[in-house]
């Protein structure tokens, strides 16, 4: 997913939107400081993960953000994740179910209050 994030950053940079990409690398210990430092700088966050929405690591990350950065948020935190369904076997459906570049870019624009 870091790859998708970097592609999104490159593409949005062309539109004048600068993005911090925080690559967590580990979830235990989780580098919460890196997350909150970035959110306090940008006042918004998109959490991108290859996994289901419910009980996902992303949910935990959003929890840290709302707790530590409440007064710094200018938009709701948006998550980009895998569709809420068992992973399909058909390649095309699998691709559609997974988080990808267009979904990530749409989410970033949403937290930037930019009409897609």
């Amino acid at each position: 997913m870091v790859l998708v994030a970097m592609q999104a950053a490159d593409q949005l940079a062309k539109e004048g939107i600068k993005i911090d990409v925080v690559d967590l690398r580990t979830i235990r210990p989780m580098d919460v400081d890196a997350i909150t430092t970035s959110v306090k700088k940008t006042n918004r966050a998109v959490v991108l993960e290859e996994g289901w929405e419910i009980c996902g690591i992303g949910a935990q990350i959003v929890d840290y953000i709302q707790r530590d950065c409440f007064d710094h948020l200018d938009a709701p935190v948006i998550r980009v994740h895998q569709a809420d369904t068992p992973m399909p076997y058909a390649k095309a459906l699998e691709r559609a179910a997974k988080p990808d570049l267009p979904k990530t870019i749409a989410a970033v624009k949403k937290v930037m209050y930019i009409e897609a």
């Binding site: 935190v77 989410a107 949403k110």
Partner: peptide, 15 residues
């Protein structure tokens, strides 16, 4: 209900 969630995997949050 979860089955009715939109096909997009972007959470339909309050935005």
């Amino acid at each position: 209900p979860p089955a009715l969630a939109p096909p997009s995997s972007v959470s339909p949050s309050s935005v």
